[in-house]
Design a protein around this nucleic acid. Structure first.
Length: 197
DNA sequence: ATCCCGAGGG
DNA sequence: CCCTCTGGAT
């Protein structure tokens, strides 16, 4: 039987909100696996926001060399830590708007962190979900926040995490950007594109 | 060789 | 809206 989804989605493996936040920001343009690999040394050297806030981006760079975008990311996470110290007592705020206001934290990252660090359910919209929403006509706009809200309204809160994972995998491996596997697609009748990508 | 899990800036 | 950043996946 054909394997529907190649490798099981890896996950960020971190312990506290600070680590989760930093790891999530870092994972924007890298795989979870490479983030998990680079991160232990980083957090041993900079265990909390206070430690990281005192570092310079140049000092941090070596720790995340293997992660994409390391130059801007090194700067980003240092600025992020400084804002955490200055505005939130070194803690990660449990508030989507406050998270969203942090440098390097967009809507998707804020939603993921809230879920992973504090168990707050939410549907984090990435490019896969954006594409899926467009093809299924679930959301007229491309704004991730709008799409996330539409999706969340469509399903009961207890299902959000499941729905999120299912749709992400479906979008990534089946309803792909190019050459989507439309054969036997269970959503074909609801699709606005119908193979006309 | 080409594409891209996202954020910020133009 | 479009672009860039950049290592890694395909």
């Amino acid at each position: 039987m054909e394997q529907l989804y190649p490798q099981a989605a890896t996950e960020l493996q971190h312990r506290n909100p600070f680590e989760l936040l930093i790891a999530t920001v870092l994972s924007a343009q890298a795989t979870d696996a490479s983030v998990n690999k680079a991160t232990p040394a980083l957090f041993q050297r900079y265990p909390d926001a206070f430690a990281l806030a005192q570092a310079t981006p140049e000092e941090v760079e070596p720790y995340i060399k293997t992660i994409g975008l390391y130059r801007s990311k090194a700067r980003n996470i240092v600025l992020l830590a400084r804002r955490l110290v200055e505005q939130h007592g070194g803690e990660v705020p449990v508030d989507k708007a406050k998270l969203r206001a942090l440098p390097g934290v967009g809507w998707k990252t804020a939603t993921v962190v809230l879920g992973a660090a504090f168990g707050v359910p939410g549907i984090a919209v990435d490019t896969h979900l954006t594409r899926l929403a467009a093809r299924l006509g679930l959301s007229a706009q491309k704004d991730p926040e709008k799409i996330g809200g539409d999706l969340e309204r469509l399903f009961p809160k207890e299902k959000w995490v499941f729905v999120h994972h299912a749709l992400i995998l479906f979008g990534r491996y089946r309803c792909t950007a190019r050459n989507p596997k439309c054969q036997d697609c269970p959503l074909y009748s609801d699709c606005l594109s119908k193979g006309a990508w």
